[in-house]
Nucleic acid binder design. Sequence first.
DNA 1: CCTCCTGATGAAAATGATTTTCAATAAGAA
DNA 2: TTCTTATTGAAAATCATTTTCATCAGGAGG
Lengths: 152, 152
Amino acid sequence: MKNCECPGAEKLHGRFRGCGYRMTAGREAVIKVLQETQEHLSADEIFSKARVINPDIGLTTIYRTLEKLSMMGEVHKLDSGDKRGRFELANSGKGHHHHLVCSRCNRIIDYDDFIDDEVRLLKEMEKKLSKKYNFAISGHLIQFYGVCDKCK
Amino acid sequence: MKNCECPGAEKLHGRFRGCGYRMTAGREAVIKVLQETQEHLSADEIFSKARVINPDIGLTTIYRTLEKLSMMGEVHKLDSGDKRGRFELANSGKGHHHHLVCSRCNRIIDYDDFIDDEVRLLKEMEKKLSKKYNFAISGHLIQFYGVCDKCK
DNA sequence: CCTCCTGATGAAAATGATTTTCAATAAGAA
DNA sequence: TTCTTATTGAAAATCATTTTCATCAGGAGG
Ligand SMILES: [Mn+2]
Ligand SMILES: [Mn+2]
Ligand SMILES: [Zn+2]
Ligand SMILES: [Zn+2]
């Protein structure tokens, strides 16, 4: 595993170990799929792609790995409007970004334009809200809904 | 129906008619439940409360009414983290507000503090994003996640 | 009021994503 | 290599939501 071309893979490898978990072929496949895509994949889509890497992997393992990675804060689970969950790596090449969600085709588009202004406001809000509501804020979600260019 | 004490009920009544739909006892019950609660109810919870008003109503009608109201833009469907949807009237006494979502008990807390600053930024973002991504924005979602006071 | 056309409804069955069960397997520490 | 136990795949179970279908009732037009 010393020549892994997937940036971050080793880190995740270590994080699994650190939590008392084992790194397996299935988990590596899921992580690799997430690292190589630019999209926001569903469990089933991850399954298809992971099968190319590891033909014996089962859908159950996809769900279990995704769940584990979510708990570890390494993947974000998104809601695109259709009923299935969609996932993305929390620490990919893309930095902190938010989403435009198409109500027609459910596609999720990343944006990080003007994100600094957004984050600045968010930080202020967090401070004020957590004090007023005695609520320990650990994350936020911002998305805009509408119709994407392809669907117009 | 002239002495209805539920503000907005008549308006909704009219909106149904205007769309070629009928106003029925079931729909009135669902609307009443939504108007009287301060919480963010699930379909099943709305079902229980609606039954008190109209014992013969079925869960299916709850879903169908909620769906119709959503399409009409009269209710917002929320995602609280547990798997079922939660609903709130779009035009209730509460004005435009956003949410704090407890990751532990899934409770949804309304806030409208500092909402003006948020909305101002949102409007700017909308303008810039819709131009850059050729995306017709029709709504937004902002929520903060964390642990509520009761769960700490 | 009475009729008629259709939209609306409830019960039951179907759906579909996600979870659980369970016996078999394989990390990886020693 | 051994041994403990986390992990796995297949199949069954869940469970919120949707669909089907025969029946019912809103309300426009008489
Ligand atoms: Mn993204
Ligand atoms: Mn609310
Ligand atoms: Zn689209
Ligand atoms: Zn809570």
